[in-house]
Design a protein around this nucleic acid. Structure first.
Lengths: 148, 148
DNA sequence: TCCAAAATCACCCCTTTGGGTGACGCGCGG
DNA sequence: CCGCGCGTCACCCAAAGGGGTGATTTTGGA
């Protein structure tokens, strides 16, 4: 900004000097005042426009438009809810496998325990979730952010 | 833009007239030319700056920045997959209710049909999805973007 | 008007699931 | 050392789910 003012003043001074020269050398005629005024007006108007453009060049209005992008929603387990419900890690594991659509028998084979054990875990987790069916348990588990 | 030029000209004319008045009424003194030039320079410079600002006012730079927002992902049903699997609207409806954790009996009460009908629909939808259990059907339905 | 798809309902049979109870071992902290 | 929580397993029973077949009605379009 200060630089602009200095430049402005310098150019003005040079112009005045130039005009003085012109006035004393070959434009000392009648109506020279009008010509002089017109010249000054034109030059300074141009200078003003240039200066105005200069001043507002960096005055860019940055508009940040937020765009919702379907990003991979990172799943964060709600540990507090998990603890408040008293769901053990094993029970949660069984619930996850239930959510994958596996039967008790398949789950038993997956985690190397008997089907009866899987039934016990699932029964407990249903009790803690207040679910009557495994589909309901899955729905509740997802709602409560216990499983992805 | 044309308006600006006209305004500019008009103001310039008025200024000239004003200056003429000043010159002939009470500023007919020595060095009046310098004063005259200074005035013209100052006024036109101001005018130029104003004009420059005016012209560049609408030169806004819009920066679009994409921001990942964990927004509620709007569910869009995959109609093509639905058709390719030959799943009827009614069957889809039943699948949705299954996904909500309802039993066949509850679904029957909800849609005002017999439990046997619900069983038929669910059986068909399981067949079309290649699911053996309702939990698996739900999981597949969500994967295939048939249900939210 | 007639056909085909969709929707509806019923019955049988078997599997799976859910609920309840009881029991055993293991590890940890009082 | 004893209790407690957790994980494990077993058995029983009732309810729900799933597969198959067959049938009727509704409905939308050729």
């Amino acid at each position: 900004m200060r630089k602009h003012v200095l430049l402005y003043g310098l150019l003005g001074g040079l112009l005045i000097a130039g005009l003085k020269l012109i006035e004393y050398r070959w434009l000392v005629v009648e109506h020279s005042v009008e010509i002089y005024g017109g010249l000054v007006a034109a030059v300074f108007a141009g200078l003003g426009i240039w200066l105005g453009l200069r001043l507002t060049r960096q005055a860019e209005t940055v508009v940040v438009r937020e765009v919702v992008v379907a990003g991979p929603v990172t799943f964060v387990r709600d540990q507090r809810k998990l603890e408040s419900l008293g769901i053990t890690p094993r029970e949660l594991e069984i619930l996850e496998l239930i959510a994958e659509g596996l039967s008790n028998k398949e789950i038993a084979a997956r985690v190397y325990v008997s089907e009866n054990t899987v039934k016990t875990h699932s029964s407990r987790v249903f009790l803690k979730l207040g679910a009557r069916r495994r589909t309901q348990a899955v729905q509740l588990g997802k709602e409560l952010r216990l499983i992805p």
